[in-house]
Amino acid sequence: MADKKWMPRWFYQLASPRWCYDITGKLLPFFAIAAVVMLVAGAVWALVFAPADYQQGNSFRIIYIHVPASILAQSCYMLMAVAGAIGLIWKMKVADMVAKSCAPIGATIAILSLATGAIWGKPTWGSWWVWDARLTSMLILFFLYLGIIALNSAIENAQTAAQSTAVLALVGLVNIPIIKYSVDWWNTLHQPATFTLTERPAMPSEMWVPLLVMVIGFYCFFAVAMMLRLRNEIIQRERRSSWVRDLITG
């Protein structure tokens, strides 16, 4: 077992549910404070101090929700697929649990991205839904999340469910660039040179700095939500072990 020394020590410690439970417990407050500070500061900055866009006016302020949500929904899928792959290759239970915790969060974040995109479309395009390339790609990403959640809940055995969803997530990961490319191409074919929501020429710094704050805030929020779910998952699967029993009774 000790012959593979090329991985850092924390990688093996991560495999221990108990160690993982302890370390996430210590990290949680920091991420929670960071998330609250960043999100509140970013939202106030975005709503009050950032200048209105000369073309779209104040509806432009939706970008501070829409873009971070879109980025996070994609990153979350990446994390889920990578964690699933680690779980498949190294048979690491914690990685499986991380992958399982990611799916519902990613799905809700994808909904947020879709909803804000639709709301933004109303003042910009005059209709609640436009088959814009980005929105369509996000919709398909949302479908991929739904498939993963459905598969995971259909299989009763926790280990089989984790492995099956990992395979599906990896297949999806290979497909995402292809889907994205084909949807972009399809969009240019059907509606040439429409005004896209988020593709803008150089944004002045008073606009993109709050955006950056919001993106980091969303990542911190994701870390908190993921760790909370992960800890639940750990307790539930390790409920027969003595340390969880002590945790519950103590």
Binding site: I140, F143, L144, L146, G147, A150, L151, A154, I155, T160, S164, V167, L168, V171, G172, N175, I178, I179, Y181, S182, V183, W185, W186
Partner: peptide, 25 residues
């Protein structure tokens, strides 16, 4: 992925249809 499940039929569509989109396009 769904061969071990009793009601795999609808689930397959859910898993596979999003992946079919590039071919359809």
């Amino acid at each position: 992925l769904t061969v071990g499940l009793r009601k795999g039929g609808v689930l397959i569509s859910l898993l596979v249809l999003p992946l079919y989109i590039p071919v359809l396009i």
